[in-house]
Design a protein around this nucleic acid. Sequence first.
DNA 1: TCTCTTGCCGAAACCGGTTTCGGAGGTTTC
DNA 2: GAAACCTCCGAAACCGGTTTCGGCAAGAGA
Lengths: 374, 374
Amino acid sequence: MSKVPSTRPSGSRVRKRVTIDDLASYLCLTKGTVSRALNDYPDIAERTRRRVRKAAETLGYQPMAHAQAIRTGRVRALGLVLEVGEHDGSRPFLAEFLAGVSQRAATEGWTLTLTTAANTADTLRQMKSLREENKADGFILPRTRITDARINFLHREDVPFVIYGRTQDPSGCAWYDVAGEDAMRDAVRALYKLGHRRIGFVRGGTGLNYSILRHDGYLAGLAECGLTPDPSLVAEAAVNRADGAAQTMTLLRTAQPPTAVVFAVDRAALGAYVAAQSLGLQIGRDLSVISYDGIPEGALMQPPLTTFSVDSRHAGSRLADLLIRRIRGEEPTELREISSAQFLDRSSHGTPALTSQQIAAKVRANHILMGGTK
Amino acid sequence: MSKVPSTRPSGSRVRKRVTIDDLASYLCLTKGTVSRALNDYPDIAERTRRRVRKAAETLGYQPMAHAQAIRTGRVRALGLVLEVGEHDGSRPFLAEFLAGVSQRAATEGWTLTLTTAANTADTLRQMKSLREENKADGFILPRTRITDARINFLHREDVPFVIYGRTQDPSGCAWYDVAGEDAMRDAVRALYKLGHRRIGFVRGGTGLNYSILRHDGYLAGLAECGLTPDPSLVAEAAVNRADGAAQTMTLLRTAQPPTAVVFAVDRAALGAYVAAQSLGLQIGRDLSVISYDGIPEGALMQPPLTTFSVDSRHAGSRLADLLIRRIRGEEPTELREISSAQFLDRSSHGTPALTSQQIAAKVRANHILMGGTK
DNA sequence: TCTCTTGCCGAAACCGGTTTCGGAGGTTTC
DNA sequence: GAAACCTCCGAAACCGGTTTCGGCAAGAGA
């Protein structure tokens, strides 16, 4: 078996990086001193430190992350493990989110190492191996669950991380989140002001923490408006169009159907259009809908979907910043940010044209027409 | 300024990795010998090599990529730079694609380093810096353009890469692609068999190479069926629903409108439903549509969209494999794969219920009805 | 039997950084 | 004025690998 060809830079100009040795001899210092100067060791004169900094700047010196890593165990890389199921792969905001993370990371000289996993156990395995191989210094955890195995794991392993979202037991966690609960509360209030009194809610993904929060926000909204919560107005989880349509149907088939429905998730809200059409109801007039996420399809619906939009790019950017600071040693309690979603006041909600009873009648009529069996 | 806290593994069990020194002393060899044995140097006895391999296995030794990198310049990391525009961020297959890449990479012990860029110049800058910092050994180039600046750049810099798609000047390129041209040709043939004689085409993204290929495929289909190409049957680029609707309208407003339209891109084909509805035409009966990509929304349309589906996960997986082999020194000409898209025979196409003239009449009637000005 | 290869491994330099240790020179203290 | 103490930098070890070089022992050729 012969030696692997060494792929030498094939004769072309060899573009030597400036190494710490170059910098040291340029400054007439030893590389140890240069290293300490750049890393803010206290035993370096302020004057020297400045001189080194300046020289590094002019020579364009940038330490090679991997050479540092072999001693420090840090590569200046953020880790992100995406759970990608068999075929739920279509995430509307993934590219935006990644753009936020990678751009913020880049400005600090960090990069993003990404892997995917099939399930939670796989995720833990991936994180462990990324950490052991020093391919990532810490992790961003998207889609936080109510109780999240990743958090326990990373705590045990003493690996820095930040979560996108919140969680039941927040101790020791740094996070960024968008206040979905406030959005849901505002949605209820807006509908109440327009005259709606029976306001339904369709939950988001089961087990995911945002789902709890948004439901809480819905309840808070009811409370503020003096409305009594009614279990028959709250539908099960729906995170796609088909389920959204089904859950809307369920709500509308009750004895006292809602005149407005708040959705935890845009993709589910798209299903309301399907359901409404099949019942001969017009969204925004006969049935009001307010949702959450701000997916682009919402703007293309007839009528355009009223929703709260989340800036995924900004989220990614903030999370990258928080994680870098966490890795550098800042306390998790100092690294918690909540921002708010932006209300997109479009046309899928309005003053109720029909009462709950009139809607019920329409649904019954349609039911008979269709010859459905419930 | 005081010393940064060194974040020592805080007392917990220190899970020492096995290093090459551990392995060497275990085997009573020097680390140099162990290294050469594992890297298939010819001056190591076969017997020794096997012994070392076995010991590495049992001790669970895995060389630390970064330590290797400082000498070899290779980190076992694939690079991917995504161009994410201001707000076109929603890519339906991104997660699937990433899953394919990262899973394949993982099985070889490689990882994926991802960054995003705002434009081409930015992409080149990112690649350059990733390469200089040794954060990626080579690159996967998605969305290949007809003439692609990235390819020239990487050639000049002598950095390994593979392209997802093909390009005008393929010299020195390794690639994986799905034969979109075959799909388009088959679409035309299928429509011809059903009786369609005026078959339109809506192009894909301008400047992108797949666009040329799919248009060629459309023309090839016409030729095989003995149909004469008619420029008025070919619409401009459309890559989203709105443009797709507009281009469909344009085609239908001609003197001899098509009875069937082939779309280069699913998202554009969704616009055909909008256009058809506004004209009172029913997709699959009055107007046949066949498209390409296999986005999930297609299945939810009424009627479900006939299309060719692309396995993005498989594409990612193959590209990772090809790139790793390219980095290891295999010749680009040996690393070229083309697979075919899978036909999803759904209900948006069928035998033409209306003739071209009948469609034209309907369009005119609707036009007058709407009081449009063209 | 002596030289010349050849096969195979140890020793040591090297890669680009970080970190520890020690000591020269100037200041402070008594 | 000597001892004690800082301040600040050089020297060298170290991290976990790779690669070069040289030399020993066994086999081949003369």
